[in-house]
Design a binder for these strands. Structure first.
Length: 222
DNA sequence: GCGACAG
DNA sequence: ATCTTGTCGC
């Protein structure tokens, strides 16, 4: 039920890929998202050198229960190059989004949004192409930060090139923070509020955990 | 030349 | 991401 709204192509070289990011970047919007009742978690698991499994799980934010999910198997069409992560994972994730039977209110991506060398990480890419509000929640930082306070909810700015591109957010006390950045049609404050609502018990949002579990446990092709 | 480098 | 044992904690 998710539609692709933006014309796009999948390049095969690093130069072309960077050009695509530069072209799409101006479409990123910085705003307050409409009410967030459902959130889609997206993740990709790898098997072997080029086989991958993309999964999307839509959760009801109030109950954190899974209301819909799709798993797509595929082959990596682009090598892993830091900064060009989206060209590897976005294609199968978009296919999965199109096969959803409901349209999620927001996308919670496993990776960065604006916290990216050209300010156009996976979350921005998926947000712009679908025109859905999106955020990036990374497990490792792209940029520098000071450790946030130990209490859940505490955060510090994440900087890249002397610019604030996101936040290091503590979702649980005693665990490493996650790195939140805006993808599309979001505000950093609202993005962090949402991540905290989605992560009441564990370090990572339940959306990411659900998608990760699906991609990891999907049966191997016969 | 050396280290960094989302997943 | 993935390759991998035991171990501490809830």
């Amino acid at each position: 039920m998710v539609r692709i709204r933006e014309p796009h192509e999948w390049p095969s070289t690093v130069d072309e890929a960077q050009a695509v990011q530069e072209r799409l970047r101006p479409s990123v919007r910085f705003a307050e998202p409409p009410e967030v009742r459902s959130a889609a978690g997206l993740d990709v698991a790898y098997r072997g050198s080029d086989e991958l499994v993309a999964a999307v799980a839509v959760l009801d934010v109030a109950s954190l229960s899974v209301v819909d999910s799709v798993v797509v198997r595929g082959v990596a069409e682009f090598p892993y190059v830091p900064g060009l992560f989206a060209f590897r994972e976005a294609p199968p994730l978009l296919t999965a989004l199109e096969r959803l039977s409901v349209e999620p209110d927001v996308l919670v991506c496993d990776g960065q949004g604006l916290a990216h060398p050209r300010r156009f990480g996976l979350a921005c890419h998926l947000g712009v192409l679908t025109d859905l509000p999106s955020i990036g929640v990374g497990k490792t930082a792209l940029g520098s930060y000071d450790p946030p306070g130990e209490q859940r909810g505490e955060w510090t700015p994440l900087r890249l090139d002397d610019e604030v591109v996101g936040r290091a957010l503590r979702t649980q006390r005693g665990v490493k923070p996650v790195f939140v950045s805006v993808g599309h049609r979001f505000t950093l404050d609202t993005a962090c509020d949402l991540v905290l609502r989605l992560a009441p018990r564990y370090r990572l949002p339940e959306t990411t955990r659900a998608a990760d579990h699906l991609s990891r446990t999907a049966p191997t092709r016969p």
